[in-house]
Amino acid sequence: MNLLFAVMIGVLYGAGFYLILRRSFVKVLIGLILLAHGANLLILTVGRLTKGNPVFVNSGTDATAFADPLPQALILTAIVIGFGIQAFALVLFKRAYKTAKTDDLDEMRNTDLSS
């Protein structure tokens, strides 16, 4: 299953990186979301994959068999913060698009507006 996760993480990272290298802002945004997914899976994998044994301590299993709770706590906040960042980036982009009238990041190089 490590192999399976390695493939998924590799694909998500590769796709994410490709997209944030684009000039179109929407693509950059989607790339960021894909990268966030990849990072979440990476944290989960690094904390070791455990199947079907979530950490609820009254289930009486031996401690070593449980999944590691710490990466999960990290990912949980990462997901929610990721949402905040997505929303912020989306709105920032909308605003920039309205002001600069372009979607092309290369055209947005200057802080001063041409108008």
Binding site: P54, F56, N58, L76, T77, V80
Partner: peptide, 12 residues
């Protein structure tokens, strides 16, 4: 606190 859930999920 005891089962899946919590403030983050509830709020969402």
């Amino acid at each position: 606190h005891n089962e899946p859930g919590g403030g983050f999920i509830g709020g969402l």
